[in-house]
């Protein structure tokens, strides 16, 4: 009896502390949204208020009409989608070949690929910049897409996963007269849906958020991705806090909504991709 009461009190304190932490975690978001709807006098009023009265939509209109935010958004979106699709395809294809076939030099090639994960981006970014400018891709989205066609981590993850698919599955399909490419595409690939979803989410998030490389290779506003655009824009308009917060809100909220809907897949993806590294 007493034991139960004791445990309950511990639990209640735990939940209280966690709730307090949740407020601290969410408050920057709440404050960001609140500021983005406030008129300038409300923004600097003392004491600060949480609910804008009356709320203004002016910053959001400005962002999409006078500023290029819609463009940044589209750029980030289509680049991330292409890279993600490509990384999923190449990772599963290459991962499959490494998992299910034996060929000359296989282990060495695989180790060569895998060990590139240890090279910090700081080492390769300068030569990549020179290569990209020789190719004439500075200020072109090709500079982002081409180096993203393969994902080392993806190849590793898919090889691990494909190894667990029984060999009989492929052999049965081949015996039935299915070609190698079709076997991969219609027999093997459908088996990988959960891991592909995880890798897809991971790759998309990473590219949506990628900053340093786009910052180096893009210098025309039309070409900016959302992070680069927001960073430039926030420095240019810094003292217009409402406008800058509207920009931040636009960058954060869509992803947060998607995250809350697909929470389980996101977390599974992170755990799967994180723990297996």
């Amino acid at each position: 009896m007493r034991e139960n009461v004791h445990i309950d009190i511990v639990k209640i304190i735990e939940i209280l502390v966690l709730s307090l932490g949740s407020i601290v975690t969410l408050f920057p978001f709440i404050w960001m949204i609140s500021t983005s709807f406030k008129t300038p006098p409300q923004i600097i009023s003392y004491p600060p208020t949480l609910i804008p009265k009356p709320p203004t939509l002016e910053y959001y209109t400005q962002i999409f009409t006078k500023l290029n935010f819609g463009r940044f958004f589209l750029n980030s979106g289509y680049i991330s989608v292409i890279i993600t699709a490509s990384a999923l395809l190449t990772s599963s294809f290459v991962g499959y070949v490494f998992a299910k076939f034996n060929f000359w030099g296989k282990e060495v090639i695989f180790m060569m690929i895998l060990s590139t994960m240890m090279i910090p981006f700081a080492v390769t970014m300068i030569p990549l910049y020179l290569i990209i400018s020789k190719l004439g891709w500075i200020n072109s989205h090709l500079a982002l897409i081409i180096p993203g066609l393969y994902s080392t981590f993806g190849i590793f993850l898919m090889r691990q996963f494909m190894s667990s698919i029984p060999n009989e599955l492929r052999e049965a399909a081949i015996v039935d007269g299915c070609g190698e490419f079709r076997t991969f595409w219609s027999i093997i690939l459908p088996q990988c849906k959960p891991v592909l979803a995880a890798l897809g989410i991971f790759t998309f998030m990473w590219n949506w958020d990628n900053f340093l490389w786009p910052l180096i290779v893009l210098n025309n506003e039309d070409k900016f991705t959302l992070p680069v655009g927001l960073s430039m824009f926030s420095q240019q308009w810094w003292t217009n806090y409402g406008l800058v917060m509207a920009g931040a809100t636009i960058s954060v909220i869509p992803v947060l909504i998607v995250f809350f809907i697909f929470q389980k897949q996101f977390i599974q993806g992170i755990v799967l991709t994180g723990l297996k590294m």
């Binding site: 926030s234 920009g247 931040a248 954060v252």
Partner: peptide
């Protein structure tokens, strides 16, 4: 809730914290 900042763009939240 605790995971929400992780999925948010680092540039965007840096802008928010600057404010």
């Amino acid at each position: 809730i605790y995971f929400a900042p992780v999925v948010s763009s680092l540039v965007a939240i840096s802008v928010v914290w600057r404010w």
